[in-house]
Design a protein around this nucleic acid. Structure first.
Lengths: 165, 165
DNA sequence: CTTGGAATGTCAACAAGGCTGACGTATTGT
DNA sequence: ACAATACGTCAGCCTTGTTGACATTCCAAG
């Protein structure tokens, strides 16, 4: 009874358990980004480019504003990244048809190729972790992560899921 | 059979499942850091200070070199953070007794207080997520995260666990 | 048709926090 | 005596985030 968990079966809510969870998130996130980061360094891109390319691939034709709220950065910050991607021919920006103020974003072939390379690397790591942990662990993993999200971000996350094939 | 999982019970290794896991990590990590970030902003500190304070609290008397390998940054980068923490009286640096080249790092009372404030906030979020997901999900969560770590980082993670009371 | 507001783009300036490279200084071990 | 180690520091650079100000374009309401 050294840690004041208290009653019945709530030992998993101990401060120690929570600290370990926090540290697990920290170290795991490092591993999570390590492989793409290495690839991006070769292309003179950063994590911000990766994120943009990922979500454009995930929701082709998304508007700048939508991407902004998903990524949670300012338009100036995103614009800098987006501009280089467009200049380099990885992303195409098409004027909206219904509302011509909006720009709809698409990956070019080259952009899709980079996305593929990056997500291959990241999925390989994820696949290895999933395989090592087993299907039941994966369910728990996702359940905890989803409970950890801010509600508005969780909405974005869920709408991405719906769009899945 | 919309997603081409293929054989038996490996549907959790589908590309779609893996992509969702990747996005879950991204959105959850945002939530994970959101609360401490807000607090840190009031103190004119950043995430780097949080990390330093966290691991010094976790391993009191740790050396600069050890902290360096845990955090995975350069000494210049860590030094900038550490210097401000020492100047502000949150961290104390004591010359080593066995090896006087080493500096051993400790939190002062003020440092411990800040650490407490930060980790309270972060643990609250973690506790809510754990409680919502349930004990079995927590086991799976930890299992997947541990499998996702780079081996050397996992060693650091494990040695922190051992030191737990 | 004019005007207000929304969506976007752009310029400028700045800060945090990474990085490399070089150098200095104790201190320790060979 | 000398090399290696642990640490600190200066200088400069990059990415990626921030604010603030301002122009443009377009839709929609009056």
């Amino acid at each position: 009874m050294s840690d004041g968990g208290g009653s019945e079966g709530l030992l998993f809510l101990t401060d120690e358990q929570l600290r370990k969870g926090i540290e697990a998130m920290f170290f795991a996130y490092r591993g999570f980004t390590a492989d793409p980061d290495r690839i991006l360094a070769d292309h003179a891109y950063g994590r911000a480019h990766h994120r943009a390319v990922h979500f454009i691939n995930r929701s082709p034709g998304t508007t700048v504003n939508n991407l902004l709220s998903i990524l949670g950065v300012t338009k100036q910050s995103l614009n800098r990244v987006l501009r280089t991607l467009i200049e380099d021919g990885l992303v195409e920006s098409r004027v909206g048809t219904a509302d011509r103020r909006e720009r709809h974003l698409f990956l070019t072939e080259a952009g899709a190729a980079l996305e593929q390379t990056l997500s291959d690397a990241q999925r390989d790591r994820m696949r290895a972790a999933y395989r090592a942990a087993g299907p039941e662990a994966v369910v728990g993993f996702r359940r905890v992560l989803e409970a950890m999200m801010d509600p508005d971000l969780k909405a974005h996350y869920a709408s991405l899921k719906e769009r899945a094939t």
